[in-house]
Amino acid sequence: MNPIIALVWKDLSIELRTRELVTSMSLVAFLSLVILGLAARSTPPAASGITPAALWVTVAFAATLGLARAHALDHEREALQGLLLTPVSRSALFVAKWASNLILVLVLEAAVLLASTALIDPGIGRRASVLALPLALGAVGFTATGTLLGAMTVTTRLREVLLPILLLPLALPVIIVSVAAIARALEGAGVAALAGPLKMLAAYDVVFAALGVWLFAHVVEE
């Protein structure tokens, strides 16, 4: 079996057995949406304006928690050390971890779309097919950066506290463009009208992926 597929399968089968990452990320996301929904409900005119931001605030914070935990799993009982001893390139290790993190975050985003349609703005459900594109392309870049930084922060003294401090500012360009595209999609713009921001997001994703493939070896080397 291709080592990357085997590594992704390893992460996913751990998650299928415990379901702790998806469950905890989704719960944090629901709570965040409830708080945002309550705040928006008390001042109705503001409600539609906060929708794109509500989606990304929720996804970004819940995903950061999930990524920190996903890397902590690798670190427990020296699992990563074992992987480093196998004849698999560091870049392949990065791509595999990135892929499993991306799958987790995409599942989270699907849950957030459902929950926010109910709690924040029914318009999200109606425009979900268009919204999904900037949200998913944003997740690609977000998890690429998160995988590189998560492997780093898990071995530091501050652990999961450090990941958001490093990841959120680096991922902000992705979030800014994705939020803007989502706002336009909610106003009724189709995929063709979003070509500009979607291309920008794709370009950012390529940059972050290249950084990860290049630098991951230096992060895990002992």
Partner: peptide, 19 residues
């Protein structure tokens, strides 16, 4: 690693802010 990633981020930040 972080200094390199941060600097590569600079033009992306600038483009997003302009957008």
């Amino acid at each position: 690693v972080f200094a390199i990633a941060g600097f590569v981020d600079v033009p992306l930040v600038w483009l997003s802010a302009r957008y």
